[in-house]
Design a protein around this nucleic acid. Structure first.
Length: 577
RNA sequence: GCGCUCGUAGCUCAGCUGGAUAGAGCAACGGACUUCUAAUCCGUAGGUCCCGUGUUCGAAUCACGGCGAGCGUGCCA
């Protein structure tokens, strides 16, 4: 598979710079950038090299651009570059080169032009991580969907990816759960549907505790018993975790999200005391006000912040302790060279601290905090899990599917019942995922049903409809894609589509540089738009000869890229809608 | 107080390492279905990119200072 267009243009541009004789004045490692043109009137790609370099060589940018163009060899790749504006050099890919590229992409069914990385890493991705005994609410949606998408993308790029659901199965909430289990549990309700009953119990005890401080102490005692290994409490805990996992798995199945491991907090229990002892022994941690803390006096930012506490005055451990034990395990047992945490922005300080602590411990691993903004309530405040009354994730998914179902019913009343249900499922789940992934992850947003579940405009159905249209043509024709001898591009809508398809290989690797699945979402949206325009402008089945063959090939390739790209976002496709 | 993140059209948001006239969608208005799926396309209208200063040939983007919002800030996770 040939390289991407920018990768082909770059060395020629570098050679042209060399030939002008200015390369001696350039900073070491200078690589002229080649970017897609913003506007088709400027061509396909552009470089600002002349403007960047003009000052250093004391020349007028446009004159310098003219010199570069003079020396530029576009043979077998681009037309003669044009100079425009303050000194941009615009490149237009030759028609036959673009045609060849489409032919190549059609052959490359698995990778669609996207190259694997040359230095694969072992990446542990930590995402979703709900607490057990409490159902997932809308707040969990970001971590789950973004994390899953990043895992899919990294895997496709050739990394060894290990997804780990670090569930909260050992927290303080168990004090209340244990008390509730023994005192207010409705056994029948639990057998019928465990997750809502566990939530009810949790909420009820939480309410009782806030009314009665003494009860809070009783709950704490339950937790202490559990952690001391009390048999009855341990048994309840185990049952509770198992029931919760079943409930969680149902939602992951709906979302089509999977994990390689579910190593929750409890997994690290027996590793915590040795870890703390070790850190104290090494002088990394020290006692302060009765607690064992890690201070960061050498660190520019953290020095002025409170320390990370890894053991409480009463001997208990905290999540910083567990997270450090988790890093150790992932490095030593999984061979992680990189760990990504897909966790909300409020935990910035915590991760700054444990990353720095891991460094002090000598772990040579690339730690990335892939943070995201908060989902806010109507009052612009964060949802508070403890109040319990936030919107549940499962309800969001069901509502989304129901809304999609209503529209399927309007548009295609004649479809069989089962097909309508399946289409509604794909669209409904896809809509929720796309709403999340099409947004920059740091943006806070106010939860709004109509916003999250919109089905018009830049939403999943728009993209799915483009895919459906690619399939409709072959269905109408009565056969699958039969291959093509030679691609022939004549219309502007065709070359725009071909160019977009070629750019898939440029977009996918760039997503991970800043963990931005939304750049892929933007690409898919643009591809869908380009295809919809092509659809309006270029009849396929009514065309003849090479034109028809080429258009069929473009439809086929568009369908493949759309399906693949949506797949990287974790969004499924449907043949009809 | 200190730290992190954000501020772009009436609304919801893109705009990656500074680049040409700041883009989409929704809502509003006007067009296009005897045609491969109109869940589409075309057009109109809508902006002091929070404010100020600086760096630069060039700033929504970078730096500094304000203002506003959210979050975090020693024994919850």
């Amino acid at each position: 598979m040939a390289a991407t267009f920018p990768a082909l243009i770059q060395p020629r541009l570098a050679a042209a710079l060399q030939a002008t004789g200015i390369s001696g004045d350039l900073p070491d490692g200078f690589v002229p950038s080649v970017d897609p043109a913003q506007n088709p009137q400027f061509g396909d790609y552009q470089t600002n090299a002349a403007m960047v370099l003009a000052k250093q060589v004391k020349k007028n940018p446009r004159e310098l651009a003219a010199e570069i163009v003079e020396k530029f060899d576009g043979e077998g790749l681009t037309e003669t570059p044009e100079i425009a504006g303050p000194g941009f050099i615009n490149f237009r890919i030759r028609k036959n080169v673009l045609e060849q590229r489409v032919e190549d992409l059609l052959e490359d069914t698995d990778r669609l032009g996207v190259e694997e990385v040359t230095d694969p890493e072992t990446i542990v991705i930590d995402f979703s991580a709900p607490n057990v005994a409490k159902p997932m609410h809308v707040g969990h949606i970001r971590s789950t969907i973004i994390g899953d998408s990043l895992a899919r993308i990294a895997r496709f790029l050739g990394h060894n990816v290990i997804s780990d659901n670090h569930i909260g199965d050992w927290g303080t909430q168990f004090g209340m759960i244990l008390y509730g289990w023994k005192n207010v549990l409705d056994k029948e309700a639990l057998e019928a549907d465990p997750v809502p009953e566990l939530l009810r119990v949790y909420k009820e005890v939480n309410k009782l505790c806030s009314e009665d401080p003494d009860l809070r102490e009783v709950c704490k005692a339950q937790l202490v018993d559990l952690q001391a290994g009390d048999k009855e409490n341990l048994k309840i805990w185990e049952e509770c975790v198992e029931l919760s996992k079943v409930g969680l798995q149902k939602i992951y199945d709906k979302l089509d999200v999977a994990f390689d491991h579910w190593l929750g907090e409890s997994f690290y229990n027996d590793k915590l005391q040795p870890l703390v002892d070790n850190l104290v022994g090494k002088g990394i941690a020290s006692e302060s006000d009765g607690a064992i803390c890690i201070f960061f006096p050498e660190h520019e930012k953290l020095a002025d912040q409170p320390p990370a506490i890894i053991q409480k005055g009463d001997g208990g451990f905290l999540y910083a302790t567990t997270d450090l034990a988790t890093i150790e395990h992932r490095v030593q047992e999984f061979g992680a060279t990189s760990i990504w945490y897909v966790v909300g922005a409020p935990q910035q300080l915590h991760f700054d601290q444990i990353f720095e602590a891991a460094r002090l411990m000598g772990h040579n691993v690339d730690l990335q905090f892939v943070s995201f903004g908060s989902i806010l309530g109507k009052d612009r405040k964060m949802f508070k899990t403890r109040d319990g009354d936030t919107v549940q994730l499962d309800d969001v998914l069901d509502e989304s599917v129901a809304r999609a179902r209503k529209i399927v019913e309007e548009k295609n009343p004649e479809f069989p019942e089962q097909e309508k249900a399946e289409i509604a499922r794909v669209i409904g789940i896809g809509a929720v995922k796309y709403a999340e992934l099409s947004q920059f992850r740091m943006t806070d947003y106010i939860f709004d049903w109509d916003n999250m579940l919109a089905l018009k405009g830049n939403t999943a159905p728009y993209l799915l409809n483009a895919y459906v249209r690619t399939r409709a043509i072959f269905r109408k024709m009565g056969s699958d894609f039969q291959g093509v001898d030679h691609i022939e591009i004549t219309e502007a809508a065709e070359s725009a589509l071909a160019m977009k398809l070629a750019q898939y290989a440029e977009v996918v690797p760039s997503i991970l540089t800043d963990f931005r699945p939304n750049t892929l979402a933007t690409y898919i949206y643009e591809l869908a738009t380009t295809y919809h325009k092509f659809w309006e402008a270029c009849p396929v089945l009514k065309a003849e000869g090479a034109v028809k063959e080429s258009r069929l090939a473009l439809c086929e390739l568009t369908g493949r890229v759309l399906k693949h790209a949506l797949g990287l976002l974790g969004i499924q496709t449907t043949e009809k809608m």
